[in-house]
Design a protein around this nucleic acid. Structure first.
Length: 273
DNA sequence: TCTGGGGTCCTAGGACCC
DNA sequence: TCTGGGGTCCTAGGACCC
């Protein structure tokens, strides 16, 4: 990420190992979009070389006129790839690709689309099918993606919306002592992250998973934000007890926090008693 | 393909308000 | 007291991503 920051001012960090860079202002003088994309190739090579020499890692880069095409390109030749998707031929380029290659189309959506006879991005381009019935509010955007259009801006904000911590047991358990101990640890972990982000949580949630993999969550919205480990632990216990979630052995237990409120207060210290 | 851990976004229903 | 229309907030679950 540090290397990327040196190359472009606009870097959107998507995850620990993925980011978007907007280089368009460096090529604003070119009126042919494909000329601009081509100019970006040496920069991409340079980034890959620096990551290789300074970090000893490979990286895959996609170059395109928008986030969707760039992401697609980066996925195409995975380890150590560099793929440019030309602007003038993007529609034809996309045609043969499977729908699953579109970020956001997962197993479920792919299956529903397949049942309507849609297998490739080309099928989507040609289709007159009422997409809204399948993908709801995403229909218009999906149709646009199929012809390589995507007007999303880079999201430069780095605000966390939720924080959570969970653990899977070696063996399913309903032992109250063991569960309490696990929960206390998770709550401490959560409080730690909360303090790092200087945030308090107005929503606390618990998550449990049973032997058959069914997963249940319960959450509660508070008037005042919480940030201390003990308070989070207590709320989690309350939720578990209120809805009697531990009547069967658990395979997983977790706690989480959302509706994060900035809190620049100093952590409350405990008196050594 | 299933499983782990950490996230985001969307949907749908219910409570509540004017 | 019941019914209309519009809106917000909260909750639970699901799809998806890395």
């Amino acid at each position: 990420m540090a290397i990327l920051q040196e190359v472009a001012s606009a870097v959107e960090k998507v995850s620990v190992d993925e980011a978007y860079m907007d280089l368009s202002d460096q090529f604003a003088h070119l009126d042919d979009p494909d000329a601009a994309l081509t100019e970006a190739v040496p920069i991409a090579r340079q980034i890959k070389a620096r990551i290789a020499s300074e970090r000893n890692l490979t990286a895959s880069i996609g170059i395109g006129s928008n986030k969707f095409l760039a992401k697609l390109g980066s996925d195409l030749q995975k380890p150590d790839g560099l793929t440019l998707i030309p602007e003038h031929s993007k529609v034809a380029f996309l045609r043969p690709l499977a729908l699953r290659t579109i970020p956001g189309v997962g197993p479920v959506t792919a299956k529903t689309l397949e049942e309507r006879g849609l297998l490739t991005i080309g099928d989507l381009q040609d289709s007159g099918v009422e997409l809204a019935e399948i993908v709801g509010s995403w229909a218009l955007r999906l149709k646009a993606l199929s012809i390589g259009e995507d007007d999303r801006e880079l999201d430069l904000s780095d605000e966390r919306k939720s924080i959570s911590s969970e653990t899977t047991f070696l063996e399913d358990t309903d032992d109250r002592g063991a569960l309490r101990a696990a929960l206390r640890e998770l709550a401490a972990d959560l409080a730690d992250t909360l303090h790092k982000h200087e945030a308090g949580a107005r929503t606390v949630h618990v998550k449990v998973r049973y032997s058959d993999f069914t997963t249940v969550t319960r959450q509660i919205r508070l008037e005042e934000p919480l940030s201390e480990s003990r308070d989070i632990y207590r709320m989690a216990c309350f939720l578990l007890a209120r809805d009697k979630l531990v009547r069967r052995p658990l395979r997983l237990i977790g706690v989480g926090a959302s509706t994060l409120i900035p809190q620049h207060t100093v952590r409350q210290l405990r008196l050594p008693l």
